[in-house]
Structures are given as structure tokens and as C-alpha cells.
């Protein structure tokens, strides 16, 4: 190319700008959903605990989606988060029942460790045996769910098993902000800082953008992949504990299909499904949007049966739009070079 490359700033259409400012459009969408639902049914926001539910319900999805997003960033996927979540809910509830002497905080920590071990199994198999994460976690999705059904059977966590203090933690908050949302925000801030600012965090992006190059560059990709699955498992466990604190119950079906919600939240929040790009607070907003939509639909008289279809549609739409804008940008860049 002899021609001088013109450096005119690429003109963006409004739609593209809005889409690229993903977080802003998500905030707008969340506000629209809340506004529309509140106008249709004022009790959605203005009844006893309406605002509280609005703020605390998304906490569970935010935490699980952040774990999922970290895995997707490295060009892997974790389909087992829903099953891990369900198992952990019962594990902790059962622990509170059978060993009431243990402080609740220890119960919770044991639950997170339990979930991390389940994630560790995924990580070992994916990272050190070079088996696609899709296949491994599809296997553990069913294996863990099956273990849950075998272990729990028709049993379920009863509200009286769960200490009042822990249930209060799920209900209360400080200055009107539920504790659960504070937990989710803390997880978001920590992992957002870790991924954006820490060296190891940047290495995860490097693995996702080009795994082969990451190996050649000298990154310990296996170890890092292994760690992402442990994080994903542990955060799914935190999700299960949040579930327990909100509902104080749980059978063998808790978290079924939750992996789709987590993946949807991640891709809606701007994580590229092929890895290598995405921001944690985008994911948190994606999760907030999805969870709010989930609680708004029944209020708007859309049967909750349709929720799964909407989640699926949002996944397909988000990845398609991402791809279309990528192609448009690529074409424009090529044109700019040709000039």
C-alpha cells in the first residue's frame, strides 16, 4: 500500500454508538423495564418490599454471571453452574440442619469451598486433559444434577433449618440497600478490578483473544484456565447461598437451567462469546437487566413459562448483534485502508 492511510475518525451510526456504549444502553433498558412495569402495576415498585425485591433479586444472577463471564473470557464455557448452585444450596441448608453448632459464617465458607471443589473437577478435566470445556461441563451439568437428585430425593430444605439471622441477612440491608446487593457489588468490584487492573486478569483476556499466542508468549494457560473454573464454581456456590438466604428452602431442582441465564447475562453484558473481550460491570448490568425482566414479566401478565424462550432469544440476539457490528466495523476499516 503506497497510499496514505486516511485517519478520518470513523463515523458511527447512532445505533452502533448506543450498542457499543453497552453499559449505558443496559442502564436505559433497566430503567425502561422498571418504568413500564411500575406504570402498569404500581405495586411492582411501591408496595411493601417492592424496591427491596427489585434490588436484592438480581444479586444471585450477578454473582453467578460474573463467574461464568470469567470462564467465557478465556474462550471456554461452564454449563455446570446451575447444577453446582443447586447442590450448594442443599449442602449449606443441610449443614445448618444437621450441625446447628457450627457458626453460620463457617457454614457459608464450607459451602463456597464445596462449590469450588465441584468447579475444580471441571477445571482439572478441561485444563490438564485438553478436552473441550463444552463437553466436560455438559457432562458435569447432568452428573452434578443427578447427584443432587440421588442425594436429596424428595427431601428439601425447610425454612426452620435456616437460622433466623441468616434469613434476616437475606431480607435486611443498610440504608435501604439489601446486604445481598452489597455482596454482589463487592464481588463485582473485586473481579472488575482484578480483570481490568491485575496482571493475571489481563492474562485471562490474552488467553481468550488468542490461546495459541498466549502459550507462545509464555503464559501458563493451563493453570489460569484451571483457576477460572474454580472461580466459576465458587461463585455459583455463592449464588446458591444467596438463594438459600432469600427463599430459605430448596429441593433437588434448584438452579435447573440457570446456566442459560448466566450465559445470557454475560453476553448481553458485552462479553464476546469467542472470548477475549468484555467488562465485569457490563456483566453485572446484564444480569441486573435479565433478573429485573424476569420479575417484571409475571407482573406484566406474561406467563413465566415464556421466560426461558426470552432468555434464549436474548442470547441469540446479543451474539448476532455483536457479530453484525463487528463485521460492519471490519468492512469500514478495510475501506479506510483501500482509500
Amino acid at each position: 500500500m503506497t497510499a496514505v492511510i486516511k485517519t478520518t475518525p470513523a463515523r458511527r451510526s447512532f445505533g452502533e454508538w448506543l450498542f457499543r456504549a453497552r453499559e449505558l444502553s443496559l442502564v436505559l433498558l433497566i430503567l425502561i423495564v422498571i418504568a413500564v412495569t411500575t406504570i402498569a402495576q404500581p405495586t411492582f415498585l411501591f408496595n411493601d418490599g417492592g424496591l427491596r425485591d427489585l434490588l436484592r433479586t438480581p444479586a444471585m444472577l450477578i454473582v453467578v454471571a460474573i463467574g461464568e463471564a470469567i470462564v467465557i473470557l478465556t474462550r471456554n464455557i461452564d454449563l455446570s453452574v446451575g447444577s453446582i448452585l443447586g447442590l450448594t444450596t442443599y449442602f449449606v441448608g443441610n449443614l445448618m440442619h444437621t450441625a446447628p453448632g457450627i457458626p453460620v459464617l463457617v457454614d457459608v465458607l464450607l459451602g463456597v469451598v464445596f462449590a469450588a471443589v465441584l468447579g475444580l473437577v471441571n477445571g482439572l478435566l478441561v485444563a490438564f486433559l485438553n478436552v473441550p470445556s463444552l463437553v466436560i461441563t455438559l457432562g458435569t451439568l447432568y452428573a452434578y444434577r443427578g447427584i443432587a437428585v440421588l442425594w436429596i430425593g424428595g427431601n428439601f430444605v425447610r425454612p426452620e433449618w435456616v437460622p433466623d439471622g441468616f434469613q434476616g441477612f437475606g431480607k435486611d440491608g443498610v440504608l435501604g440497600i439489601p446486604w445481598l446487593l452489597i455482596v454482589a457489588a463487592a464481588v463485582m468490584v473485586f473481579f472488575g478490578w482484578f480483570l481490568a487492573g491485575r496482571r493475571t486478569g489481563r492474562e485471562l483476556y490474552a488467553i481468550g483473544s488468542n490461546p495459541d499466542a498466549a502459550v507462545l508468549y509464555g503464559l501458563r494457560t493451563r493453570r489460569l484456565t484451571f483457576i477460572t473454573f474454580i472461580i466459576s464454581g465458587a461463585l455459583a456456590g455463592v449464588g446458591g447461598i444467596i438463594y438459600l438466604s432469600i427463599f430459605a428452602t430448596g429441593d433437588s431442582k434448584v438452579g435447573t437451567g440457570y446456566e442459560f441465564q448466566a450465559i445470557a447475562a454475560a453476553v448481553i453484558g458485552g462479553v464476546a462469546i469467542v472470548g477475549g473481550s468484555g467488562r465485569i460491570w457490563g456483566v453485572a448490568l446484564g444480569a441486573f437487566f435479565l433478573a429485573t425482566l424476569g420479575s417484571a414479566l409475571p407482573v406484566l401478565n406474561v406467563p413465566s413459562l415464556w421466560q426461558q424462550a426470552i432468555v434464549g432469544l436474548l442470547i441469540v440476539a446479543a451474539i448476532t448483534l455483536d457479530r453484525v457490528f463487528f463485521l460492519v466495523r471490519q468492512r469500514r476499516a478495510r475501506k479506510a485502508v483501500m482509500v
Partner: peptide, 26 residues
């Protein structure tokens, strides 16, 4: 569109199942 088949079919796995469940209900 050029999307990875894994991502597409995870999405449509939820979508098609969701439509079936939505249409038939319980």
C-alpha cells in the same frame, strides 16, 4: 452470520425449549 455453532445452539437450545414450554404450558 459467522457465529460459533456452540454459542448459537446454546441460545437456540433455550429458545426452542422455551417456545415449546410456552406453547404447551403445563
Amino acid at each position: 452470520v459467522g457465529l460459533p455453532s456452540l454459542a448459537v445452539t446454546i441460545g437456540t437450545l433455550a429458545l426452542f425449549r422455551g417456545i415449546a414450554v410456552g406453547l404447551l404450558g403445563t
